[in-house]
Each structure stands twice: as structure tokens, then as C-alpha cells.
Computed example of a mutant assay.
Amino acid sequence: MGLFDKIFKRPGPAGAPQGYFKTLTAYTPVFTTWGGQIYESELVRAAINARATHISKLRVQVQGSAKPKLQTRLRTGPNEWQTWGQFLYRLSTILDVNNTAFIVPVMDDYMEVTGVFPVLPTQCQIVQYNDEPWLRYQFRAGQFASIEMRYCGIMTKFQYEDDFFGTDNSALRPTMELINIQNQGIGEAVKSAATFRFVAKLNNFSSTKDLAKERDRFTRDNLQNGEGGILLFPNTYSEIQQIKSAPFVVDAEQMKLIQTNVYNYFGVNEDVLQNKAYGDKWSAFYEGAIEQFAVQFSDVATKMLFSERERAAHSMVMATANRLQYMSNAEKLNVSAQMADRGIMNRDEIREIWNLPPLPDGQGQAYTIRGEYYLLGTDGSVTKKGDDLTSGT
């Protein structure tokens, strides 16, 4: 039994689908992967990898009291084959490449949901069966799988034309073509730099046959021995000149513009790609590129795993990140001191900022407040730490 059989245990419609699910925009609800192969570009792959790497650090938490067995399994991982980091990395990559990412539930033999898995179909259709929309997936190996739409999750980017799927990345095609042309120009420039070409006037030859013989002799004597050296031109040659080719390569300013187009499209920058962003720079990257993914994934996963009643009772999936970890050491020290002194954060929360494990036996759950701080009661009373007396002010 392969991975396909382990994931798609839910039987599809017994009969033929009863047409496509009707949408408001009148577009046929069909998703097809774009053949632009943007992931094969080094710059684009680096941008996608930067986002996916940071997104894979998100902490997925399950809250509420609904489905305790499922919650226990999700706390250890999304499924039996992946960690949460691997799941989020692949989901982010699929979303950036296709602008649509599908999450399907993993079910056991009793049709109970035991986890979630990101899938990469070559095509997905929303078909209707018994007045209910179904997602019908087709994969590269030729397999088909169908599952009710309410059990699945769909994440999108650049969603405009279709009611359910994101638009493809054809808007990036002109930039991709420029990157391809630029790479070809650099390659041709390297080849031309290792090649020497000359042109010369050959005197006192009137026969085409004699010219061909002299050309073959010159090539044989000077260019085919593989020993290197210098080229010797007899006095039958005149007006000897080297041919210099100059392949077109865009200048640094134009190349910077091409890179900026890719950075703008994927919401990254050079500091993020080279792991130099921290503090306010990383916070800006988090808010622009990571937080929106975390919010959308949290909403999609919550809706597909919990019923409306369970969601109303505050059962949810939430992806969060400790942004304080990306501050400089000086900023971390200042935040740690200020938050601990005022009793806002306990010792374990402070240790998390420094990537340290919690203290054993719950020792780090205690809060510390410095002695010169006072507690103001709702009745106007003031209590100083260590004092047993309370006085009003």
C-alpha cells in the first residue's frame, strides 16, 4: 500500500459527477498547475525557500476541548510521515509556486480524521454530487481521488478570477524571461572570453583550392597540437586583426531591478535571503510575509478540522511565532529585564526568548516583581512588595 492509498481512504462518488459546481464568476472551477517552471530559477527558488524556511518555524497549537484524541495526535505532528516543520515548509512552497495549496485530511480505517497532509495535484476540479461539492484531484502518476470539499482546506494567493483557486504566476513571466536571457548572456560571455579569433588578408593566392590548402595547413600547424604557444604568421599574411565579441549582459542597475521584481513578488529582500534580517527588519518581514500565511493556515485548518459548534466553543488550530527570538542580544536583554521586573513574563517565557528549555518541575512558572514596584488595587489601595500593610493614596 502506497502513500496515496494511505491518505485517500474515503470512497469517492459512487456514480458519475453531476457536473461542475456552479460559481458566482461563471468560471469553471478547475485548478491546473502552471507550466512556467518558476521553481527552476535560482533566484525564485531562493526567495521561495526563504519564506518557507521561516514559515516552517511557526509553532502549531491546538486549543479547546473538542476532539481530544485528534488534538493529542496533532500536538506531535500533522501526520505519521512529516513533522510540523516539514509540513509547513512544503505547504508554503506549494502555495508560492502554484498560488493554490490543498490540505487533505488523513483518515483511519474507521473514517476518523487522524491528521492533515499537503497534496500537489496536477489538476483539481470542484464537481457536484448529490447536491454537495466534491474536490476531485488528479495526480502526476495518473491517480484520481475525490473527497467532500467541506473536509478539505484550500489556501490561495492572488485570488481574483476564480471563487476558490488563486491565479497562476503568469504575471512573473516577463521577469523570468529576462532572468533566462541574462543567464544565457553570462554563459556566452564566459565562452567567448576563452576563445581567440583572428582575421587576416592572405596575399598572392588566386586559386580557391590553394586558399583552402593554406587554411588547413595553418590550422594543423598552430591549433591542433594542443601544446600551446604562439601563432606564427608568415609574410603572406597582412592586416592581421583580432575579432572581439561583446555578448550583451545587463548592467548592475538593470540586474538589481530584475532581482527587485522577484523580491517584490514574493515579499522578501536581500537581508532575508542572506539571513541578515533581525530586530525591526525581521519583524517587518514577519508581518508582511509570514503572519498572513499563519493567519490563513490557522483559519483553514480550524474550519476543516472542527465543526461550527466546536469553533464557537473556541476549539481552534493556531500557528504562532515568538518574534522576540529575532531581536539582537542587547534588545533581548532589555526586554527580558523589563518584562521580568514587572511580572509580565515568567522565567520560562524569558528563557524561551533565549532559546533555552523550561526549568524542571514547573520552577519557571513563577513571576518576579522588583521591590520598588507597587500594586494598585481597584479600590485605590497600594501594596508594596514585601509589605503586609496596605494604605490608600
Rank of each mutant, 00 (worst) to 15 (best):
A52W: 04
M176A: 04
Q363A: 15
N322T: 09
L172D: 06
T100L: 00
G288W: 03
I103L: 15
D387L: 07
L91Y: 01
F293G: 02
E239D: 15
D251K: 02
K256L: 08
S238K: 14
Q18P: 00
P118D: 12
G64K: 03
M339R: 09
I38Q: 09
E161P: 00
G85H: 00
F164M: 06
E239W: 03
Y263Q: 07
A141T: 10
R197G: 10
N355I: 02
A16I: 08
N98T: 12
G226D: 13
K384D: 00
T302N: 02
I179F: 08
M316C: 02
Q365T: 11
E291A: 12
A252V: 11
V62I: 15
N222I: 11
A330Q: 10
Y374E: 08
E253N: 10
T393C: 04
G386I: 07
Q325R: 15
K22L: 13
C124K: 05
K9G: 01
N183L: 11
Y367R: 13
T33Q: 14
I240T: 10
N346P: 05
S170V: 13
G115Y: 02
F4N: 03
N269V: 08
L231R: 11
G343A: 10
G362Y: 06
K213P: 00
T236M: 09
N275A: 15
T260V: 01
V60C: 03
A101Q: 06
K201F: 13
F218T: 07
L231G: 09
M1T: 14
N225E: 13
G386T: 05
V382R: 11
G15Y: 02
F21M: 06
M111R: 14
Y20D: 03
V30W: 03
K244M: 07
N204W: 00
M255Y: 14
L376T: 07
R323S: 11
M316N: 12
N180H: 06
Q274P: 00
T33F: 02
Q86H: 09
D108T: 05
Q143I: 01
M111E: 11
S170E: 10
D299P: 00
P11D: 04
L376R: 15
A171F: 10
L232S: 12
A337K: 11
L91A: 13
K276W: 05
V44W: 05
G392S: 14
T83D: 03
I147V: 08
I344T: 03
L135N: 02
I94F: 13
R10S: 04
V199R: 15
L356S: 03
K22Y: 03
A50Q: 01
Y237F: 15
L58W: 05
T378A: 11
N235T: 14
T302A: 05
A171I: 08
D108A: 02
Q274D: 09
T167C: 11
Q37V: 04
R51H: 07
N222T: 09
E308A: 12
A366M: 03
T175L: 09
P68A: 08
E80A: 10
A212G: 04
A294F: 01
M176S: 04
Q274W: 10
D388G: 15
K213A: 15
V127N: 09
P121D: 06
S192T: 13
A200D: 02
F21T: 13
R309W: 01
G267L: 05
P247Y: 12
L70E: 00
G12K: 04
L172W: 02
A330F: 08
E80H: 09
V250F: 12
Q86S: 15
Q71D: 05
G362T: 06
L74M: 14
